[in-house]
Computed example of a mutant assay.
Amino acid sequence: MFDTSSTKALLGPADPARGVPIPPPRARAVDLIALAEATVDIDVASGVRRRRILVPVAAGVAAVGLVATGVVAGGLIRRHPPGDTAGQATGPMPTGTAAPTPTRTAAPTPRFGPVVRPVAFEFDKRPPAAGDQLRALAAQLTPSRCDTTTGRYTFIHTIGWNAVFDDTPDGKSQRIVPSERWEWRADDGSERFRSTLLPAVYPNEESYRYYQKHPVQPSGTPAAVVHDLPPNPDRAIVPLPTDPAEVAKKLAAGGKQFLFWNVRDWFSAHAVPLATRAEVLRILANTPGVVWRGETTDRAGRTGVAISLDDKAAQHVLIFDPSTGEMLAWDDVERPVDTVAGSTLLLGCEHTDQLG
């Protein structure tokens, strides 16, 4: 099959477009899906969530038009190459004199692979019920940066994925494309988020070896996306409840099978206040089937405590900071193959007057 360069060489002087630069290659469908997923806004109140999926390459066709035209989730995407800060001062900026940027703890560097395996637990076999441990944890929580910082914007920094891409002819080798997301949300519904795709990792050794021999060529997918949304009452931040009955009602949306997903969504989209964090832990403590996995280390190298809710198809994992009760990580592990089909690392949460 002729590509653009070979066709132009064949035409030579007769080429009517001679001298016109050749554009970069089109993005691969699997990369576009991952990029689109990285820019989808999470609407916790409506119960809309991104589900764990195994996506064949053909399924990416529907996403191509969205990203190629620069429209995702109802807003305009601006693409910037690495290191380009153009446009970062536009969008929903604070009024008046901005307060100094609070001292932000540097985000840890995650360790993903190249082969992604489930995290190791203190209690891997025969774990005890999690009730007593979670209730004790809820009773001794200390404030986090979400509680001690102030500012117009709620800032949240995450890395994760919700899909495993199968784009090999034999269907036996898969890739995971993590995305990193920085989000600033204001009470009036204005929002900025930046997202970028990270290098691919692999769910098993077989897939890793395959892609070592058959590397994926650079796709031309934008390295970074900046997405600004103007003020909109429909997107205004709705404070999370602190009343135990209301917390339990909202977390129960969708049934027990979605409990860990709902917790993940809360921490991924909100600065969850201390009182609500404590109540979340108590609700998990009273949920049948939730077991205590004990001390663990997440993919950012942080020590936390883990719980899981297991069924025949998957193991659902939450890792919490043992001091503050903040979620450090969420994993969805497919059984029996132990593929980490979905994962979220919460790397930063605070309030600020500064946009990035």
Rank of each mutant, 00 (worst) to 15 (best):
T101A: 11
R18E: 08
P56V: 12
P16W: 07
T69V: 12
S268F: 00
R126W: 00
Y208K: 07
D353R: 13
Q315P: 01
T287E: 09
F267K: 02
T39M: 15
G171Q: 15
T276Q: 04
G19A: 13
A14R: 08
D234C: 06
F2E: 02
P108Q: 12
E206R: 02
G304N: 12
S343P: 01
G96S: 09
A138H: 07
T168I: 04
T303E: 01
Y202E: 03
R277D: 14
L134D: 04
P336S: 11
Q257F: 06
D353T: 15
C349L: 09
T109W: 12
G70W: 04
N204K: 04
L66E: 04
S46K: 12
I77M: 10
L11Q: 06
P23E: 06
W266S: 02
V115C: 07
V263R: 04
R126M: 06
K312I: 04
P110T: 15
A98F: 09
V30Y: 06
P215Q: 15
T344G: 00
R135C: 07
I237E: 00
G289F: 06
Q140H: 07
D234K: 15
A253S: 06
I33E: 01
E246P: 00
A17D: 11
P16M: 08
A306R: 01
W292H: 10
A341N: 03
S207W: 01
G301V: 12
V263S: 02
A17S: 09
R117P: 00
R282S: 10
T324V: 08
G342P: 05
S179V: 12
S173I: 03
G75Q: 14
D188A: 07
E206C: 04
M93T: 14
P110A: 14
L66P: 02
A14C: 05
E326P: 00
K125R: 15
S144I: 08
